[in-house]
Amino acid sequence: MNKRFKTQWILALSLFAFSLTVSGQQNQQCLQCHGQVFYEYDNEWTGLKDKRPMNPFYHIDSVKMHQTVHKAFACTDCHSPEYETFPHSGELRMEEKYACIDCHGGDDTYAQFNFEGIEAAFMESVHYKANDEKFNCWMCHDPHGYQLGLRTDESIKSVVSLSNQMCLDCHDNKFKYGLLSDDLPKDIAQIHAWLPNQGNHFNKVRCIDCHTKVEDDILVSHKILPKTEALRNCVDCHSANSVLMESLYAHRVKQSRAQSGFINATILNEGYMIGANRNTTLNVVSIVLFGLLVLGLSIHLILRLTLLKKK
């Protein structure tokens, strides 16, 4: 590396680090209240320091915040800079939030995700149909915690866990669910009581693998179907051409096809799904062995019947 290049490189790095510290410092200001269980402020009237509990729904998990796809953001990139003053102005709660499409729409950088396709699918989901604008992308994609799952090298298990938590955060939380519905959310374990080995299934299969249909133009289909159309047929998954090949495993299938030309066994090595894991070599060997056995015994039988009769 020549010297000029090196200084440029260092300059670029430190600029990047600087920008991170700035957003980090700014966030620190918000997180000293929103990242804590209690927050404190100077009471100008009494001259004392007041200590108050933070509303748990306004609590931001700073660890998660560091892992989200938007971790480089300052709070005030999405929220009004006026939040820097406390008490926050009452009008701020009427502030309109950005939608994903405001930033990601029509941007080639994100073409692979097909945000427009996702939005169209989402608009046909039960959630949007029942609630209209009240149900938006942020309902599932926690603005302060959303991480990419499927597209990463994470194990299937953690992809499933990330993805299912997005549904369970609401379907298993009466406060969040209550924002949209007057009913209590139904117990997920009870709804799915018909599914054997439920714990294992929910660790290895996503809610959306049963509650959406595969869509060709988007990797994660977003059209949550009415419950009557949910997948219930075991064999749709538990068979050689499992639907999971086009949904949960689709990304890996594509990757390994690109690398080696055919579906790599490693896709399914992480788990074992009755009916779907088939080792072709073992299959052929076992059928051949069985065939030979039956052939041998048949010959023996025929000989017994003919030779022994004659004698």
């Binding site: 054997p196 050689a240 009755i274």
Partner: peptide, 19 residues
């Protein structure tokens, strides 16, 4: 039946087979 389960050929229905 489970090992070779497929939507086209059902020897024993999958749920029944598992149970």
């Amino acid at each position: 039946s489970m090992q070779y389960s497929s939507p086209d050929l059902i020897i024993v229905p999958f749920e029944l087979a598992v149970a």
